[in-house]
């Protein structure tokens, strides 16, 4: 780790201006990913601007009935918040399935979205990695792929995004509020993260100096009937092999709205629009669930060593949908 300067932020605009000015500066949130990366030599900032000092630690109800979660809200506080639990149970479940109690007390909403892949090669500076060092090659291809992508990968990168929270947010149509050098803007969570393509070093569409200030959750009846299911190698405290966030709005025996996203399968939280299309406007039957999973996963391209993720994703989705329906009966 190289020496760095530390500055507590006084206001969002000032923090953005400071970081935007200095190419080697970055924001510090809960630190649970950044400090990790600085120790491993993956991140080498010369200036940290601490944004946990900003008043971004509130959860508020919006005029339209949605909810705004400040970027500085700790994962544990978001998961424990009565409004989140009641209106967006999948989000609370996703938050609670991430990391550990101690880490959730540190990790922030903004930091969780921006955490980087846990690909073992990305995290090891002694192995080539296009995400860490563009052009050096992808070591995961032909290597250890258990935690790697089956959807949307490229020949340059097969890493997955590790967040649970972001998967639920993607399914729930959450929108990220960003303050950047050029002002404020909104980015739907589904558009925040990128597929790797030939630029795997770029995880998101954000530019240097962009600061996430909040995440807005829209009001939606289906959200109340949402679930998050995480399948992993340990019963707890492990990253997802596959996870599913799903919400169904069922009226008069038919699915009126469906929202589905997968985690652990792609470089970004994978919104499963094709599966949603199959589910909508029909009765929620077992065979529809299988069809929906099939529709989404027919293009899956597993790697040697993670073929099991295709049936796992399929089965997990069906299992979650089954559960949601049985709860609504």
């Amino acid at each position: 780790m190289i020496p760095f300067d530390y500055q507590p932020a006084e206001n969002a605009e000032g923090a953005v201006a400071t970081v935007a000015r200095a190419p080697e500066a970055t924001f510090l949130g809960g630190g649970t990913n950044l400090v990790d990366h600085m120790k491993l030599g993956l991140a080498r900032p010369s200036l940290l601007v601490d944004v946990t000092t900003l008043p971004l630690d509130r959860i508020e109800t919006l005029p339209d009935g949605g909810v705004r979660i400040g970027a500085g809200v700790r994962n544990s506080d978001a998961a424990a918040h009565p409004t989140i639990r009641e209106r967006y149970p999948a989000l609370a479940e996703a938050l609670l399935s991430g990391a550990s109690g101690q880490l959730r007390n540190l990790a922030t909403t903004g930091g969780n979205l921006l955490q980087r892949t846990r690909c073992v090669y990305f995290q090891d500076v002694t192995t080539p990695c296009n995400k860490r060092e563009p052009g050096s090659g992808c070591s995961a291809l032909g290597g250890y792929t258990r935690y790697h992508a089956i959807l949307g990968a490229s020949s340059d990168c097969v890493a997955v995004h590790p967040s649970d929270m972001a998967v639920a947010m993607a399914a729930l149509d959450a929108v990220v509020q960003v303050t950047g050098p050029g002002g404020q803007r909104d980015i739907p969570v589904v558009d925040l993260h990128r597929l790797p393509g030939d630029q795997p070093h770029r995880d998101t569409v954000l530019s240097h100096g962009d600061l996430i200030t909040a995440v807005d959750l829209p009001p939606a009846p289906a959200s109340r009937h949402s679930r998050y299911r995480k399948v992993r190698d340990r019963a707890s405290y492990a990253f997802a092999l596959v996870s599913v966030a799903a919400a169904l709005d069922i009226e008069d025996g038919d699915v009126r709205a469906a929202r589905v996203a997968f985690g652990g399968v792609s470089h970004k939280p994978w919104r499963a629009r094709r599966a949603e299309d199959v589910l909508v406007e029909g009765p929620p039957t077992e065979s529809t669930f299988w069809d929906a999973a099939e529709a989404e996963l027919s293009d899956a391209e597993p790697l040697r060593g993670n073929e099991f993720k295709v049936p796992l994703a399929r089965n997990t989705l069906v299992s979650v949908l089954r559960e949601i329906v049985s709860e609504q009966r």
Partner: peptide, 23 residues
């Protein structure tokens, strides 16, 4: 030293946290 074991847990302002990932 990477937030993966919990051995460094303390109560920080009353809440449990790992201390290895905080500057």
């Amino acid at each position: 030293d990477h937030g993966q074991c919990g051995s460094c847990t303390v109560l920080l302002d009353g809440r449990r946290v790992t201390t290895c990932l905080a500057f």
